[in-house]
Design a protein around this nucleic acid. Structure first.
Lengths: 167, 167
DNA sequence: GTTTTTGTTCAAATTTTATTGAACAAAATA
DNA sequence: TATTTTGTTCAATAAAATTTGAACAAAAAC
């Protein structure tokens, strides 16, 4: 099987390094590991899809990191697999629609926390109801109620964000 | 100087532990250290303002952690200092207006990243313009332009979030 | 069926981040 | 002024998160 039109450099150039660095910073804000930013960044700046081995060689990261990082990105819907050209190995290209990226991030990284928070806050309300001192009980119910409002507002906000960033 | 109406327990009870745990989880999502969540959580569930030493004793954390955590929370506008009752030591109470909390978080934790991202992306555009291969240059300009749109959308989103969560 | 290629998993090593606690400074009290 | 109280700073330590790499599995090629 011959090499097709993918260039197989081992090193990345100045602008690629710069883009990678932007995404490393970007994903840090989102609480994702640097390797994920490196991988997505290099895909983002590449004109052709890259294989796992391309990522390992150009970013000088381990196969384990690359595999794990790609899994995270797949989970977020931030990369697509391509298998065109009768190639054997899977190649990856970035999803670059903001709507899709935001949707994936909310689904994978935000929703679960909001949901588990809702549960914990509900349990908190139950505890507050059991408080025997009436003054203390009133105070606790006020506070847990406020927490409940926060999480509800947060939950309502997410679809709005998706709508606004969906163009 | 006599003790006033602040209770000076050394231990926290079940509901206090539960509230603290909710906030530890909460701040983790925001990328803040657990101690910050513990401190804010205990203030949130307390009916009277607490001193640094109250926090140290009840949460069993070091004075250093408490001091550093309070500094972070002050920076976020998430705690207020009180010095009522002619007390000597400073006491703290939580800011519980969502608008204020979100505003502080955006100002301290989001804005700086958005701003430095803007700079990096601008520099990226400059690099892309210098690319000699016209096909490559076109591609790079498309991608950096897209990045620019992302960060602009993100920047526009922040005030909207503040407005929506401001009741 | 055997060998090679490709990719995953996970324990160990590394790196990063958070916490501790002792030294220090500042301010109140005596 | 000397002493005590209160709070901060930061180097050392502990804890948590990330990365590595070797062992393994699955699938293709031979």
């Amino acid at each position: 099987m011959q090499e097709l039109d993918h260039d197989s450099r081992q090193e990345i150039d100045a602008i690629e390094r710069e883009v990678v660095s932007v995404f490393v910073d970007g994903v840090r804000v989102l609480g994702l590991p640097p390797s994920v930013g490196e991988i997505y960044g290099l895909l983002f700046v590449s004109q052709t899809p890259l294989s796992l081995d391309d990522l390992v060689q150009r970013l000088k990261i381990s196969k384990g990191s690359a595999s794990q990082g790609l899994r995270t990105l797949k989970g977020l819907g931030a990369v697509r697999e391509t298998n065109g050209n009768g190639e054997r190995r899977t190649h990856y290209e970035p999803a670059i629609e903001l709507k899709r990226l935001v949707g994936g991030f909310i689904r994978e990284q935000i929703r679960p926390h909001v949901d588990s928070g809702r549960h914990k806050i509900k349990r908190l309300g139950d505890l507050a109801h059991k408080e025997s001192d009436p003054v203390r009980r009133k105070f606790l119910l006020e506070r847990t109620d406020r927490l409940d409002h926060w999480i509800r507002n947060g939950g309502r906000l997410l679809p709005m964000i998706q709508r606004i960033l969906g163009q």
